[in-house]
Nucleic acid binder design. Structure first.
Lengths: 211, 211
DNA sequence: ACACATTAGTGAAATAATTCACTATTATAC
DNA sequence: GTATAATAGTGAATTATTTCACTAATGTGT
C-alpha cells in the first residue's frame, strides 16, 4: 500500500472511475500526451470534471493550476495507490470459445495481469488447444494455483458449473474472481467478486433504447 | 412501452438491477420455482431486500404478502415494462477470437437477442470461419444493417478501430452499442452505450483485494 | 378461531454522491 | 509587468440512493 490513503475507505464507484482513468492515462502516455485536464479526463471516462477532481484528490494526488495533471506522473501515482504496479498472476477456468479468447487477450499482459494457467474438464479440448499458455485438466486446479501463487481466477465455464468452480478457486486461495458465466456466484466477504454478464448488458441497452 | 411507468425517468442503477432480477427470474422459472421473496432476490443479485422492493415497486409491479413475488408473473411484468419481449436483432463487428466466441454465445439467442450478422475486414478470416451466422466483409456493414433492420451493434475489434466502427454503426442506424474494445468510445446522446472492459475489471479486483 | 410470523409496500430518515461556488494559482497574451 | 483566462482544490449545497420503521395483509400452526 502506498502512503497516506486507506484505499478500503474509498467507494467502489470512485475506485472504478480511477481504474478507467488509469486506462485512459496509459493510452495517452503511449500517444505522448504530457498533460491532461480534469475536463478532458471526464470526457474520456464519461464523468464530470468535478467528480474527476474529487476522485483524484481523495487519493491525495495533485495536479497543476492551468495545466492539469501530468499524464505519466498521475499514472504512476494511481498505479501506486491502487497497488497495480506488481505483476498479478491469474488463471482461466473453462477453455471454450470465450475462455480461449481470454487466454490470449494481449491487453491483460500489457496491464500487468499474467495468465499463467488455463483449466478445462475435457482432456480432448485441452489437447486440441493451440496456445503458449500452460493448460491443465481441472483436477489439477488446486495444486497448480497453490504452486504458482495464482491470486486471480477468471471463470468462463457454463452457468451450471460456475459456483462449483468458484468454490474450488476460493478453497485453493485466490483473492478475487472475475466471472463471465451468466449466473450470480456466492462468495465470502473477503473475496472480491465481479461479474461480466453480456446478456444483462444487452438487456440494459435494449431497455434504455426501448427497442 | 407498457402502461403506467415512464422508464426513462428511472435511474440507470435501478434498470441494471431490474435486468439482473430478470435474469435470476429466468433461471428460477427453468428450475420450476413458483415464488420468490425480495430477500432471496436480493441475495441473487447482490443487493438488499429494501432496494429490490423499491425497484420493483417503482415499475408499478406488486407481489403477495407472505409469499413474495410470483416468479413467472414478475418475469412477464418486467419483460413488458423493460420492452424485452420483442426479438432484437444485433450484429457483431470484429471476428477475432472474442468476436467469434460472441457469435455463437447461445445465451443471447435464449434471451431474445438474435445475432443476424458478423463483420470483419479480413476476407481470409471470414472464409475460414465455421459458423451458421452470416458473415460479411465490413464494407457491407451499412447496407446489411439497414436491410436487416439491425438495432444493436457489438464491437469486438481492436481498440484503434473501435471509434471508426462505432461511427459507421451509428450512421447505419443502430440504437445501442455494446463495446468490448478496451477504449472509451464517444457517441451522441441518443445512442445507448455500454462498455465491457475486461482489463478494467481486473484492475478493480486487484485494487480492492490489494494484490 | 386465534395467535404468530412473514412479507410486501412505502413515507421518512439517513447516508452517499454529485454538483456548485468560490479561492488560489499560474500560463499566456499584450 | 499587468490583465486575463484557465484550471485545480475544496467546503457547502444539492440531489440521489439506500436503509429504516412502520403498516397491512395473509399464510401457518395450534
Amino acid at each position: 500500500m502506498c502512503h497516506g490513503v486507506y484505499i478500503m475507505d474509498i467507494s467502489d464507484n470512485t475506485i472504478k472511475r480511477i481504474c478507467s482513468i488509469f486506462g485512459s492515462l496509459s493510452a495517452m502516455e503511449k500517444r505522448g500526451v504530457e498533460f491532461v485536464s480534469s475536463k478532458e479526463l471526464a470526457g474520456y471516462i464519461g464523468s464530470t470534471e468535478y467528480t474527476v477532481r474529487k476522485d483524484i484528490s481523495i487519493l491525495g494526488v495533485t495536479g497543476y493550476t492551468r495545466r492539469g495533471y501530468e499524464v505519466s506522473g498521475l499514472k504512476k501515482e494511481l498505479e501506486c495507490k491502487l497497488n497495480l504496479s506488481k505483476k498479478k498472476k491469474a488463471c482461466i477456468v473453462g477453455l471454450g470459445r470465450l475462455g480461449t479468447a481470454l487466454l490470449d487477450y494481449e491487453k491483460f499482459q500489457e496491464d500487468g495481469f499474467e495468465i499463467v494457467a488455463g483449466f478445462d474438464c475435457s482432456i480432448n479440448r485441452i489437447e486440441r488447444l493451440n496456445t503458449h499458455i500452460e493448460v491443465f485438466q481441472i483436477s489439477y486446479l488446486k495444486d497448480t494455483i497453490q504452486q504458482r501463487s495464482i491470486e486471480l481466477g477468471i471463470i468462463a465455464v457454463p452457468a451450471k458449473s460456475a459456483q462449483e468452480v468458484a468454490d474450488d478457486l476460493i478453497e485453493a486461495g485466490v483473492k478475487g474472481i472475475l466471472n463471465f458465466a451468466p449466473v450470480k456466484i456466492g462468495v465470502p466477504k473477503h473475496i472480491i467478486y465481479l461479474e461480466m454478464d453480456f446478456t444483462n448488458a444487452l438487456r440494459f441497452i435494449a431497455a434504455r433504447s426501448s427497442l
